[in-house]
Amino acid sequence: MKNRNIQKIIRNNMPWLILLAVSVIFSFISPNFFTVANVINILNQNAYIITCAIGITLVMMAGQIDLSVGYQMSLIGVTMGLLVQKLGMPTPVVFLIAIIEGIVLSEINTLLALKLKITLLMVTVGTMTVYNGISFTISESKNLSGFDDMFKFVAKGYIGPLPFAVIVTAILVVIMSIFLNKTYYGRYIYALGGNEEAARLSGINVNKTKLMIGFFEGLFVALGTIMLVSRVGTAHSGTGPGTEFTVITGILLGGVSIRGGEGKLSGVVAGILIMAILANGMQLAGWGTYVQFIAKGIIMLAAIGFDVYQMTHRKLVVDKTKDENGN
C-alpha cells in the first residue's frame, strides 16, 4: 500500500522530477547554472512561452491541437509594431488591441472547426499559412520598432528582485490552475478531452465550451506575444513561428496526454522549463541551431511515445490493484 502511494506520487510529479534531474546534471556540467541569477534569467526568458502554454494547455486538455500559435504571435506582434510605429498609439491601447486580436484569431480557428466539423489541427494547418501571409504583407517584412518604456517594462522591468514578466506569469498560472481544477468550466474541459460525445450527451454545451477555450487561448497567446515583443524590442513577422513547437513539446513533457483529458498546469510549467534548460545546455555545449532542432524533435517523439506507453502500461497497473482488492 505504502509502496503504491510512493509510486503514485512519483507518477503524478514526473515532470518536476525530470526537471530536477536535468537541473542537477547541468549544475555539474556548468558551475554557473544553479545560481540565483541564472535561474531567474531562465524563468524570465521563458515567461512568454509559459504564458502561451497556459492557453494551449486548455486546447490540448480538450483533446485538440493548434498549430497556428506561432503565426498568431507573428501577426499580433507586427500589428503592435505598426500601431506604435505608424500610428503612434499609446501603449495601453496597443495592448488592448493585441489582446482582442489574439482572441479573434483563435476564435476564427474554433468557429471554422465547429462549422466545418473538422479538427482544430486540420483548420490550423490552413490558417497558419494565412496568418503568416497577412503578417508579412502588412509588415512588408520590415523590422518595426519605437516601443516606449512602458512597453519595454513588461519584459525588462523588475519588481524587487523579480522580473515583472515572471511575477505576472506566476499569477496567471495560479489563477488558471484554480480555474481548471475548481470551477465547473474547468471540469467541462476535462470532460471534452475524456469523451466529447459523452460530454455532449451529459448535457455539457460542447460548442460553448470550445468557444470559451478559444477565448482563453487567444488571451494567453496575446499576453505571451506582448512579453516576447517587449523582450526582443522590435516586431518582425519572423518572430513567433516555431514557438508552437516548443510549447506543444513542453506541454506533452508536462504530462498532458496527446488524446486530451489528462494533466496539470503545474506539470506544464515543469515541461516548458525542461525544454528551456535543455536548450540552454545545448547552447552552452556549443551545439548549432540545426542540431538543436534534431534534438528537440527527438524529445517531442520521446514525449509522445512515453505518453502512449503510459496509457497501455497504466492499464496493467490498475488491473493489478483490482486483484489485490479481491476482484
Binding site: K182, T183, Y184, Y185, R187, Y188, Y190, A191, G194, N195, E197, A198, A199, L201, S202, G203, I204, G261, E262
Partner: peptide
Amino acid sequence: EGAFLNYSILWNSVVMALKKDAKGIFV
C-alpha cells in the same frame, strides 16, 4: 457515449451535477 472511461466513478457520477451544485463558478 455514456461513460468517461478514463475517469473515476466519482468523476463520472457527478459530472452532470457540477453546475447545479456549484457555488458560483466553483465546484
